[in-house]
């Protein structure tokens, strides 16, 4: 953020980052669809050291009743971090940051889901961050989209997400916690790979117009990689990996 002087080497002369990755290499990603018996749909993602569990309910009755929309179903998202998900105990009450992330994830999923067939209902997405290591909103969005597909909510497309960013004046893919703290920019992106539309775009830091374009390109490529894994997670659950 804002080019704070880094004590650690974020990018060495060989183009290797602080955790040994190349500039355009994402962290290890593992996605599993299903797993929660009582939820209508669920997914679990490990995105580097992030561990996130998502449960989806619905379509179901809306409570409180006044939130219901007679024209369409509504989507509700709760992003929540466990007290043990970070180094120092986090107060479990929803913080300003969690409320914001809930909102942006909801808005990133809304272009994909089609709830017009389910008026007067709600689809609830519960995101629990079990372990956080930078880039949780992207990992959460990726998993939420798999969980929605698992619940059978009609969707125009999946939403895959990953962050691009800038450290040591170089554009990188998949910003981890250290790079987020000490780097120059962090740009989380959500992308619908088949339709080719961006549903989430935030930027923390400063980029030149050229760097911004580069970040978008790198980010879209990353999202496509994430999408392949989402696809595989669903294939594994529903088709026993035969395609």
């Amino acid at each position: 953020m804002g080019g704070r002087e880094a004590t650690m080497v974020l990018l060495d002369e060989n183009g290797i980052r602080c955790d040994g990755r190349k500039v355009d290499e994402p962290r290890r990603i593992m996605i599993r669809a299903g797993g929660l018996k009582n939820a209508d749909g669920s997914a679990y993602i490990e995105f580097g050291d992030n561990k996130i569990l998502v449960g989806v309910f619905g379509p179901r009755d809306v409570h409180p009743k006044h939130m219901a929309n007679t024209d369409t179903g509504i989507l509700r998202v709760r992003y929540h971090m466990e007290p043990f998900s970070v180094g120092e105990r986090k107060n479990p009450a929803p913080s300003r940051r969690e409320i914001e992330i809930s909102k942006v994830i909801k808005e990133a999923l809304e272009p994909a889901v089609m709830l017009d067939k389910f008026p007067r209902t709600a689809v609830d997405v519960f995101i629990e961050v079990l372990q956080a290591d930078g880039g949780t909103r992207c990992a959460a969005l990726t998993a939420a989209s798999v969980a929605l597909a698992d619940a059978g909510i009609p969707m125009r497309d999946m939403v895959a997400a990953i962050a691009a960013g800038k450290v040591a004046d170089t554009v990188i893919l998949d910003v981890n916690n250290e790079e987020d703290q000490a780097g120059q920019a962090d740009m989380p992106m959500g992308y619908m790979p088949n339709i080719g539309k961006i549903t989430l775009l935030q930027l923390d830091g400063v980029l030149t117009p050229e760097e911004y374009k580069k970040c978008i390109e790198v980010g879209i490529d990353g999202c496509k990689k994430v999408y392949e894994l989402q696809k595989q997670a669903l294939n594994d659950k529903y088709f026993g990996n035969r395609d």
């Binding site: 209508d40 698992d150 619940a151 059978g152 669903l234 529903y238």
Partner: peptide, 21 residues
Amino acid sequence: TTVGITEIYDDSVRVIPLTGK
């Protein structure tokens, strides 16, 4: 729009869903 199996008939296409309410 869902996880399922496609069926293509003479002039129509549909997906048999594998999940959903």
